[in-house]
Design a protein around this nucleic acid. Structure first.
Length: 478
RNA sequence: GCCCCCUUAGCUCAGUCGGUUAGAGCGACGGACUGUUAAUCCGCAGGUCUCAGGUUCAAGUCCUGAAGGGGGCGCCA
């Protein structure tokens, strides 16, 4: 195909030279001005048509959504509103777009819910192209952050033979005929005849594999798709999502919290530095959306203010036990405003409690640590008091839990006992226990929900809008 | 898995106590327009009121069920 200059590139290209651009028409004004977008950046290039040089049939076919190629001189703009514009010598229609049937009329301000139902076309909107550019920047920033700090990227398996990851319900992977599966002598499905010769699932976490790697490479992280077959119907859950799981040897819970806080601040700053136009657009969009809400429900801070606030403030770190004290004595608890009143130590915190701590009490990100062992996973390191474990949850305003992690139990005997207490099948996990048998070291790690981070940074409120094609109960469209 | 709400034109939404012929803005379409910025101006068309039953002299409006969508809770990242 003929060489083209990308629209992002052309804004900093020398003027008074000839360029060819290709893209999709956003609007066509006055039979003369095309706002052209190729997704490389938020901004549209103004392509100016000469009515005398351009065939009337071509002009008729320049409609919103059509793809075109235009060649001409880049000049300083003769009008206000943009610095440069392309004076088209030739315009070619690459793909027509019938306005009668094209589902996206940008001037109509289609709702997010409507666009979600036409997710194959929603990339064409300002909001979604901005979201996915920011999503990319965050993904790249994650690799950069870890690479710059000496971490190695580990590809943990997507298909797992382990049923014991303990992070949630799993999707089964099989090539057996589900109408007529082979049976063993007891009448159960005989997985020895399945593709892998055993029962397999899609991964719910790469953590255990990351631990194995960290106990040799010292600093590793995973970044891959994760699958949970839970019937979760919320604005913060997906059945298929992406998770980042760093794991660090010779590290304790404090090191883990430092890493998590540094990473989140780095990533927010990275997006502010690399995607200022996208963030500015998303901020404006949010502001307009909130105009329709009652005053009390509007955000106290703009998107940019909120992101800067997060970078500049140290996250509040406190133990579960301290959090319970605060909650027990809080006004909503005393006035019976909590749906689940805080009665004492030991109860799991509900999202209303987390939200109170983050949004009302501290008004900034909070890291809660040292939870009761009964409400946390078997692999978390037991504290000296024997009642709590070295867990940490990073809680963000509006999002809730964005990171969950812990210092891991590195002592063989203690880990074995915890597994037995929690009915983890020890024989199937011998490979995991081996790392504690041979040269075990203190180590720690966490899981970051990638889409929850994208939600926070873009100011969106539904997780289904920050992944291109969301998978959730009852839906795997596109 | 539990609870609540919504579904009216292509989109966003009004539609009063059940009462005659179903309303607006935007978009689309036709026209005008060589400096527009969600262009503007003039004109015009567009409806299985989500679907299936029911109540009623009469249903967009009330009842039951289904489908689709949204929100809250739980599980978590």
């Amino acid at each position: 195909m003929e060489k083209r200059t990308g629209i992002k590139e052309i804004f900093s290209a020398p003027v008074n030279q000839t360029y060819t651009v290709m893209g999709w028409v956003r609007t066509f004004r006055n039979n003369m001005f095309i706002a052209l977008n190729d997704g490389s950046t938020m901004d549209n290039l103004q392509v100016v048509i000469d009515g005398e040089k351009t065939d009337a049939d071509i002009i008729r076919r320049i409609t919103s959504g059509a793809s075109i190629k235009a060649t001409g001189q880049l000049i300083e703009s003769q009008g206000k509103g943009q610095t440069v514009e392309l004076l088209a010598e030739t315009v070619e229609i690459l793909g027509e777009c019938d306005p009668e049937t094209y589902p996206i009329q940008l001037k109509n301000r289609p709702s997010l819910e409507y666009l979600r139902e036409i997710a194959h076309l929603r990339f064409r909107t300002n909001a979604f192209s901005a979201i996915f550019r920011v999503r990319h920047a965050l993904a790249y920033g994650i690799h950069k952050f870890f690479n710059d700090r000496g971490f190695y990227y580990i590809h943990s398996p997507i298909i797992t033979g382990s049923d014991a990851e303990g992070a949630g319900d799993m999707f089964q992977v099989t090539t057996l005929d589900i109408k007529n599966p082979p049976l063993d002598e007891n009448g159960n499905i005989n997985y020895k005849e399945d593709f892998f010769g055993k029962h397999t699932n899609l991964t719910v976490s790469g953590q255990l594999e990351a631990e194995l790697a960290a106990l040799a490479l010292s600093k590793v992280y995973t970044f891959g798709p994760t699958f949970r077959a839970e019937n979760s119907n919320t604005t913060r859950h997906l059945a298929e999502f992406w998770m980042i799981e760093p794991e660090v040897a010779f590290a304790d819970l404090d090191d883990n919290m430092d890493l998590a806080e540094d990473m989140l601040k780095y990533l927010i700053k990275y997006v502010l530095d690399t995607c200022p136009e996208d963030i500015a657009y998303l901020e404006k969009r949010l502001l307009e959306e909130e105009k329709n809400k009652p005053q009390a429900e509007r955000s106290e801070m703009s998107l940019t203010q909120k992101l800067h606030f997060c970078i500049e403030q140290p996250f509040e770190r406190l133990t579960y036990t301290e959090a319970i004290d605060i909650l027990k004595n809080s006004t909503p608890n005393k006035k019976g405003k909590f749906q689940f009143p805080i009665e004492g130590w030991g109860a799991d915190l509900q999202s209303e409690h987390e939200r109170y701590l983050v949004e009302k009490h501290f008004k900034k990100p909070v890291i809660l640590t040292n939870y009761p062992k009964e409400i946390k996973a078997f692999y978390m390191r037991l504290d000296e008091d024997g009642r709590t474990v070295r867990a940490m949850d990073v809680l963000f305003p509006g999002i809730g839990e964005i990171i969950g992690g812990s210092q891991r139990e590195e002592r063989y005997d203690v880990l074995l006992q915890r597994m037995q207490e929690m009915n983890i099948p020890v024989d199937e996990m011998s490979w995991f226990l081996d790392t504690r048998k041979y040269g075990s070291v203190p180590h720690a790690g966490y899981g970051l929900g990638f889409e929850r981070l994208v939600l926070f940074v873009t100011g969106m409120t539904n997780i289904r809008d920050v992944i291109p094609f969301p998978r959730f109960p009852g839906s795997a469209e596109f």
